[in-house]
Amino acid sequence: MTTVWQGIALGACILGMTACGPLNEGDQGAGAVRQALNYLPLPGQEPAAEPAPFVVTRAMVDQLPGDVMVVEAYEGTSRALMVPAAINLNRVTWISEDEASITTENGIVIATRGFPRDLMAASVIESRRALAAGGGNAVRTHETLSDLDQISTEVLQCSINSAGTETIQIVELDVFTRRFEEQCQNENISFTNTYWLDGSGQIVRSRQAISPELGFLVLDRP
């Protein structure tokens, strides 16, 4: 909230137009007033445009001590750097500064937290094996958190196929990759994940479906 708004809020509090004091924090009435104020444009002030997604540079990546992952969400409108926070067997949980996390297993997303429709868990071992084998079929299980706070499970039939080679750029560096596509479907949902593997077989870029509401995440490993 800008200083102007703070001033207005304080004034409104004194005038009794909105609520203040510790007991009123999070008060719906006050919250509604605040929300309404946010929608009212101040005279002579343009509504603030959504900041453009920030650009990741090689220097930023190099500055970080360990592994780094660049995550792009919502069709590229949002981008964040993530670093590993915990490793549980072969499952790595990456976190961003604004407190979202993604857990990967050998580069494939098995969980997210802090997104509007989180993937609570996934079993992806067959997909990973098919990728290593240069293609094949796999069964995936996705668990998401429902609107009613229950686990909702989708079992998907997937087929993984090679889509040739491609030289891609990851944070200013060219990388020669083999590209794979994984087509998954069941009676409710279908999606296609894409993976770019470097010479060592590591997934250096991927575009992976998380949930219908969240869509795809693009993960780069600079």
């Binding site: 915990a86 549980n88 949980t93 996390s101 937290r113 802090g114 509007p116 429902s146 609107d147």
Partner: peptide, 19 residues
Amino acid sequence: PNERPTFSGLDRAPAPIKT
């Protein structure tokens, strides 16, 4: 009520488990 406009909610990610 069955359709939450905020889907599964906007809670910040929890701390990962330290194993």
